[in-house]
Design a protein around this nucleic acid. Structure first.
Lengths: 134, 134
DNA sequence: CTATATACGATCATTTTAGTCTTATATAAA
DNA sequence: TTTATATAAGACTAAAATGATCGTATATAG
């Protein structure tokens, strides 16, 4: 799975939300990292819809983390922004499977690799990911 | 990194090239797996250019493996078809780096994750990937 | 010579990604 | 209660990647 801009932006935004107390607005994050505001808004709304964040409307509002950065994983973010889209069409459940699935030579391997990848993503916290020591 | 059709087709093609003796043509592979012929041809040419395969022109020609399937890895195939494109723009060397790279909060994590992913890909042989036992 | 094969560049269609625009709604504070 | 600031959400557009096709050249076994 490729980490496109939305994932990058989501991770940067998380880095700006290091506590669960003071909300930070999309505008402020957008300004700090030079991320297009409307695009970032949608990303944060998605994360909010998946309960990674909590949104607070109105002045002094913004977003706060629902979990600590230690407990929020890369997998959580990917799941929020990509859904359960798999590493290959070959293995995807929705959207009509491959016509050769029953006699497919690659799907067993893809399924195994998908599991390995998921295990990695859901075992790296955003905290670990963004800290720049070592 | 997402496994798009070209990677899927390449893996299927490899499954059809289980020995290093008798060449198999793109046409035959295309027919066997219902893969568009011209597209498959380019994929095989790419793999050939990267020395994963050897091509033999003329009648009774086709492609043969340069390594055994035990020694050919998923990473080799990805490398042949994707080049050294990384898991995120953030970390890619070519094509002008991210303007925020020097003070980037996510690039160290991306680099680490890239390495983890590469290690996996270059340690799974095509043989292991396509065998459907267990 | 001919049929069969790879080599390769150009082109086109579709899908995904990235970014923009607009309108509606919630709410803190003057 | 008005105003400024914020999220919510859908439509839309542009650009890039992916998937597929077409045409032509070249190599070679028989």
């Amino acid at each position: 799975m490729r980490f496109t801009k939305d994932i990058e932006y989501a991770l940067m935004a998380c880095a700006a939300m290091d506590d669960q107390i003071k909300p930070i607005s999309a505008k402020e994050i957008s300004r700090r990292f030079q991320i297009p505001y409307e695009l970032l808004s949608k990303i944060l709304q998605n994360m909010s819809a998946h309960n990674d964040l909590k949104s607070i409307q109105g002045p002094k509002g913004g977003y706060v983390l629902n979990k600590t950065l230690e407990h929020l994983t890369i997998g959580d973010i990917v799941l929020a922004l990509r859904g359960d889209k798999s590493i290959a069409d070959c293995v995807s459940i929705k959207g009509g499977q491959c016509p050769r699935f029953d006699k497919c030579v690659i799907s067993p391997g893809m399924i195994k690799l998908q599991k390995i990848w998921d295990d990695i993503l859901f075992n790296i916290s955003v905290k670990d990911f963004i800290k720049n020591e070592n």
